[in-house]
Design a protein around this nucleic acid. Structure first.
Lengths: 366, 366
DNA sequence: GCCTGCTAATAATGCGCATCATCAGATTGA
DNA sequence: TCAATCTGATGATGCGCATTATTAGCAGGC
């Protein structure tokens, strides 16, 4: 029993009309001045109902007709490992939500080969992209050539996460790491902190750059000295924090804040009583019974949703059927969206215990 | 700039050959005795490399050639709400993992309309399914007609979760709730428990039926009396447990075990010292700092992965290109897989405090 | 010189659909 | 009564690919 699809031709035969007529009835609108009588229309609709006809999307796509109503999601890093699952999960949740509301299906490009933990968009990959009307891109390390190909083929796509250098032409939905970080510094200053360290400046990814940027400008605006702590392991970092008599530190979530706090307490510095620790984003690997972090959170779900909405509009505007629309020009869509990262009131921030400068009675650990 | 795809014809022109030749080179095998010289082959491959040609999957699909290498995932319940996200997440993780290994893409059918929290597979939906080579079905409440259509069209699919009544012909990957529950009873008996209650027998879903089944048969095998507690709210349930002097209860995860334990302790019965509570599955809404439950866990990730593998094989066997394969008959695939639910050693099970029968000083509550 | 056998490739076809150009028949205007 | 208009529909075409049938060219056997 070779599964035979019911085609428009089958329906047409049953209704006693031509295949073209069926197509017209289905698409409602008739571009050229083609008219279908109500009677015929009903006959066709009945035939469709009886046969249970379902259009073949591949054929629709090929015939250049409509969109597939499929939007793709490409993740540069492999999403599978538990770790990144925690990270990507919220994005996907937001994306799914938006997809439901838009009535589109989601295509997860899980087929692209992962090389050293990073998914590449190979030639093979390009083939697959075509199934979707457009694509969301998640992750940091996009490849130059790949991007160029996207632009060349005029394939609609949207990045999740701000694109910095020469990202001017790339549509994205990002988070305001700069503003979020600035606010954390201001909060700490308001609590009486002066010696505020920054942990985790390594990395050339955009979030890191933005956080450092925010830290620098906020400290400068407050007239304070920037102090970066950048050591190889958590223990050394904690030692340095103690040593430098910081009363507060801001930490990027990928820098093992949980372990850092543990190390601090092991050295007799309680969090937040002795040292406030603010997290610049959500913990990447939340652990059971972990600390309730203060800091800011990245609105990942909303980013996902907004990105999909944006993509959806790009696709619509890009579609050959665009002219049927409201005639709205593409320029009124915000190609670069930066979302606010709301503050999180946890339990790791407290007023500075002793704002006055102490004697320099440090002991050298490492 | 109307995005123009590069087609096989373009490649052919560049290589100075016919479109058919390009197709042959790409597909390697030539069913009929068509030969391509090594020299020509190279010329075509070069042209492909230069042009960056990527096949159009829609066309491939339409031409009846290969599979789209896309497998679908249809979720009956809306996956979006946080609650069900926690539940479905692990399945999806497993599915994704399998998809990566199989080199297929995943199509999430988020487009189907959700009616009172349940997604329906409407006519619209059928259209969409066709994009994928086959489909995974998640969730309890499938619609009869929908299933029939699947069977009629011979569309490959696999259920996640055991199918009971007349599910004989439906391929599925389920979990051994029966066995898992039996083992919990046996564990409790080994710990000296005799008065073992069952909480949460409502519901006609398969897991519930299986759990009740397991409880019944295990208790019978141990020569003990089955005792079901089925009240409307958690407080009343806790009261009943205390009242009946159960030394242990097994609870289905959808019955608010966390709240139940709280209520028990509020009534002076510590868990597990006074009452052991075993969970028949993972908590549906894990809460921060929740109890470390003893019981068994449902291997959701593995179920997802196994289901996708199974689907993949069904698709392959069903494909018109099957004959090229090893000639393996479809019958050697296990259409009904039941996975073991491993025991979880948490902290909510303890030896029965007082195994000897007490006087029957109960007070009647509701 | 003609047929056979073999290699290397091409032409032609169809998948299911959207769309354009065309057409038959009915109605109207003069 | 014949052309002009309108209504309601059909035939033909092509999307990009896989595949089958066919052909061109050439070596060898008789």
């Amino acid at each position: 029993m070779p599964r035979r699809r019911i085609t428009q031709t089958d329906v047409a035969a049953m209704a006693g009309v031509s295949q073209a007529t069926v197509s017209f009835v289905l698409n409602g609108s008739t571009p050229a001045g083609v008219r279908i009588s109500e009677e015929t229309r009903q006959r066709v609709l009945d035939a469709i109902r009886i046969t249970g006809y379902t259009a073949n999307p591949a054929a629709q796509r090929l015939a250049g007709g409509g969109l597939a109503q499929i939007l793709g999601v490409f993740t540069y890093e492999a999403t599978f490992p538990r770790a990144s699952r925690d990270f990507y999960g919220p994005f996907l949740t937001g994306i799914e939500h938006a997809a439901e509301r838009l009535g589109v299906d989601l295509l997860l490009f899980t087929s692209a080969p992962v090389q050293d933990g990073r998914r590449r968009l190979t030639r093979e990959g390009w083939q697959r992209l075509g199934v979707a009307d457009g694509c969301l891109l998640l992750g940091q390390h996009e490849h130059r050539g790949e991007l160029q190909h996207l632009l060349d083929t005029n394939y609609p796509f949207v990045f999740i996460g701000k694109r910095g250098s020469d990202g001017g032409r790339l549509p994205y939905v990002g988070a305001d790491y700069v503003g979020g970080t600035v606010r954390q510094i201001d909060r700490l200053v308001a609590l009486g902190h002066r010696r505020i360290g920054y942990v985790g400046m390594r990395g050339t990814d955009q979030p890191t750059l933005d956080r450092v940027d925010g830290y620098r400008s906020a400290m400068k605006a407050q007239g304070l000295t920037t102090r970066f702590v950048e050591l190889d392991d958590v223990a050394a970092t904690a030692a340095e924090i103690v040593d430098q008599r910081f009363t507060a530190v801001v930490v990027a979530p990928e820098n093992h804040p949980e372990e850092l706090a543990d190390e601090l307490e092991r050295r007799g510095r309680r969090v937040p009583d002795d040292v406030s620790v603010l997290l610049l984003g959500q913990p990447h690997h939340p652990r059971r019974g972990g600390r309730p972090w203060s800091g800011f959170s990245v609105p990942r779900e909303e980013m996902g949703a907004r990105a999909l909405y944006l993509l959806s509009r790009l696709v619509a505007d890009d579609s050959p059927k665009r002219d049927r629309g409201t005639g709205r020009t593409p320029t009124d869509l915000e190609l670069h969206q930066i979302l606010v990262c709301p503050d999180v009131e946890g339990g790791t921030a407290a007023p500075a215990r002793d704002p006055r400068p102490e004697t320099d009675n440090r002991t050298d650990p490492a």
